[in-house]
């Protein structure tokens, strides 16, 4: 079992994801350079956070045209697991692997800090180590995490159980006050219809050790390994 972490020019959470998988999970992991067209040998590919290509024009807009993204699209097509975190989520939206788009945070400011997330679907490759309804604590750090999709897309996402996480308060209530960026329906993470591609704005790789304030993020990576191990 091996994880691959894509490195775009401007990725800055690539090393964090690497450490979380290697040290937190204890699973082999390698970087994948954006110029490569070969992602053979990997079981799960992580598109990490950061500011790929400076996020100039729109977050993730230029990164999706990297050579590696063709390979990632094929990998996903074949059923490979792809997890986009923060900027990686934005890239997945831009390249169409996931529906919707990101707007600027409604505060118009970058937001960094811990948020509470309600697990909406625990039956996916990325959430099976959690329980539905559980509240986990993860950091966010983004300026464009205000999830938008038209009402039909939102309806489809909800009906198919493709909303993975929603921003909530400490007791699991999904409220406007708990929404850090204005996302529709407090959406923090979603997956594709097949369930093998997921994107989330919060950073599980920043919460893999107690010393960092939370180890809840490790459950996301554990879900992946238990899914792959039981396959």
């Amino acid at each position: 079992m091996k994880f691959g972490i894509v490195v775009f020019p401007g990725s800055n959470c690539d090393a964090d994801a690497y450490y979380a998988v290697r040290d937190g999970l204890g699973v082999p992991v390698e970087y994948i350079w954006h110029g490569t067209r070969d992602v053979g040998g990997f079981d799960c590919i992580v598109l990490p956070g950061g500011f790929a290509y400076g996020d100039y024009l729109r977050a993730g807009a230029i990164a999706r045209f990297s050579p590696v993204m063709d390979a990632v699209l094929e990998f996903a097509e074949r059923g490979g697991l792809v997890l986009g975190i923060c900027n990686g989520f934005q890239v997945l939206l831009e390249c169409g692997l996931l529906p919707g788009a990101m707007l600027r945070n409604d505060s118009l400011q970058f937001r960094c800090g811990y948020v509470n997330l309600k697990v909406e679907n625990a039956a996916t490759p990325f959430t099976n180590a959690l329980e539905r309804g559980r509240v986990i604590r993860l950091p966010i750090a983004h300026g464009e995490g205000n999830y938008y999709a038209d009402s039909q897309t939102l309806g489809n996402l909800q009906a198919a159980g493709r909303v993975l996480f929603r921003y909530c308060d400490g007791e699991g209530n999904v409220t406007a006050e708990a929404n850090p960026n204005g996302s529709l329906l407090n959406i923090a993470g979603i997956c594709n219809s097949r369930g093998n591609v997921a994107g989330m704005m919060p950073h599980p790789e920043r919460a893999y050790q107690r010393i960092l304030g939370s180890a809840d993020g490790l459950e996301i990576f554990r879900s992946v390994t238990s899914f792959l191990g039981g396959r």
């Binding site: 729109r58 807009a61 938008y148």
Partner: peptide, 8 residues
């Protein structure tokens, strides 16, 4: 293809 995102 690039300059605008048709979703938004």
């Amino acid at each position: 293809r690039l300059l605008a995102n048709p979703v938004i």
